[in-house]
Simulated scan of single mutants.
Amino acid sequence: MRLVSDLKGAGYLISTASVLLLGIVTWQSASERPLLLICLILGMLLSVLGMMLRWRSHRLEQKERDRER
């Protein structure tokens, strides 16, 4: 079960890195229009926050399962 947890964590880290890389690529063109820049920043933050929450919920579920055993 530890392998599954490690793989999920690695997947969330890879997804976070991809959000950051895509944000870097679009930063210059978005910076020319303030509304686009705000949307880009908020979208990146929300995406990373969502991945962090999913990872945290996975860890909490794992701890509950371990306690039940």
Rank of each mutant, 00 (worst) to 15 (best):
E32A: 15
L20I: 10
T16D: 04
S57M: 01
K8D: 01
C39R: 13
G11Q: 01
W27I: 09
I14K: 11
L22A: 13
L21E: 07
I41K: 08
R2G: 14
Q28Y: 15
P34I: 11
S18C: 08
T16Y: 03
G50E: 00
L40W: 09
A10Q: 06
E64S: 06
L49R: 04
E61P: 03
K63C: 09
G9T: 02
V25R: 12
A10F: 07
L36W: 12
G9C: 04
R54W: 00
V19Y: 06
L53A: 06
E64I: 04
L7D: 03
V25P: 07
L35Q: 13
W27R: 12
Y12C: 12
W27T: 01
E64P: 04
E32N: 15
G9Q: 02
S15P: 05
H58A: 00
I24F: 13
Y12F: 12
I41W: 09
I14T: 09
G23F: 04
W55Y: 07
Q28S: 14
S31D: 09
I24Y: 10
Q62E: 01
D66V: 02
D66K: 08
L37G: 09
S29K: 14
Q62P: 04
S47K: 03
T16N: 05
L46D: 02
Q28N: 15
R33T: 15
T16H: 03
G11N: 02
T26C: 14
G43Y: 03
L37F: 15
E68R: 10
G23T: 04
